[in-house]
């Protein structure tokens, strides 16, 4: 660009070093997209269980005490599977982006990112386990959205700052969801599915696609 000027080149060098040493920049937009699709698939499975409990093999009068407990465990397992798949797919895309740019995946920037992501997320995990323990499942989806949103806002200082906006939108969605708990699955699918896909595409376009073209 302006590399004919040595001082300008030096300044750009400094800027690059500051950026690269304090933020994990290998986060791929496609990670968000893949996690979003996993979330949508999970929401779709959950939806089919809810509208047709008979299809779960619980019998036509599902919704009674014992059956409800079984269904609850199925949902917890489903949530766990969605989380694992989403994590695995997003790790894959981020790992391949780091490898393409010849940057380390595991360095002090990714360490800081993970620690700061994990603090609000663990708090959310404890809180939601408590809700489930007390059979207070109404507020599980909004709590997921709010705590995940807080995690992203907190972690955004240590990676591409765009995830701050997904975080704020998730917090907002979770807050509204508190008052419309009948639509929790829809809110959840919007926050974890659609938002991830849309923002993932934006980030992919901004950092990976255009960046690769230069």
């Amino acid at each position: 660009m302006d590399s004919e000027h040595p001082s300008l080149e030096t300044l750009q060098d400094i800027k690059r070093m500051m950026e690269r040493s304090s933020r994990f920049i290998s986060l791929s937009g496609l990670s968000g997209v893949s996690a979003g699709f996993v979330a949508l698939a999970g929401a779709w499975v959950a939806h089919s269980w809810l509208v047709n409990p008979a299809g779960t093999g619980e019998g036509p009068d599902a919704g009674g005490g014992g059956d409800f407990l079984a269904l609850k465990w199925k949902f917890i397992l489903l949530a766990g599977a969605v989380l694992c798949l989403a994590l695995a797919s997003s790790l894959y895309f981020t790992w391949s982006k780091a490898r393409r740019n010849k940057l380390p995946v595991w360095d002090h920037t990714s360490r800081k990112l993970l620690v700061n992501l994990a603090i609000p997320l663990m708090a959310g995990g404890l809180f939601i386990s408590g809700l489930l323990y007390h059979n207070n499942w109404h507020f599980v989806a909004p709590s997921c959205l709010i705590f995940y949103g807080l995690s992203l806002v907190n972690a955004s200082k240590y990676t591409l700052s765009d995830i701050r906006y997904i975080g704020m939108l998730d917090i907002l969605l979770g807050g509204v969801n508190m008052y419309f708990t009948g639509y929790s699955l829809q809110f959840w699918a919007l926050g974890f599915g659609v938002l991830h896909i849309v923002y993932g595409l934006i980030m992919w376009w901004k950092y990976d696609y255009r960046g690769a073209g230069q």
Binding site: T10, D13, I14, K15, M17, M18, S21, S22, H108
Partner: peptide, 13 residues
């Protein structure tokens, strides 16, 4: 360039 790099990194970490 190396000392400049070290200082840039230490300023933000």
């Amino acid at each position: 360039r190396i000392r400049l790099g070290v200082m840039s990194i230490l300023l933000v970490n």
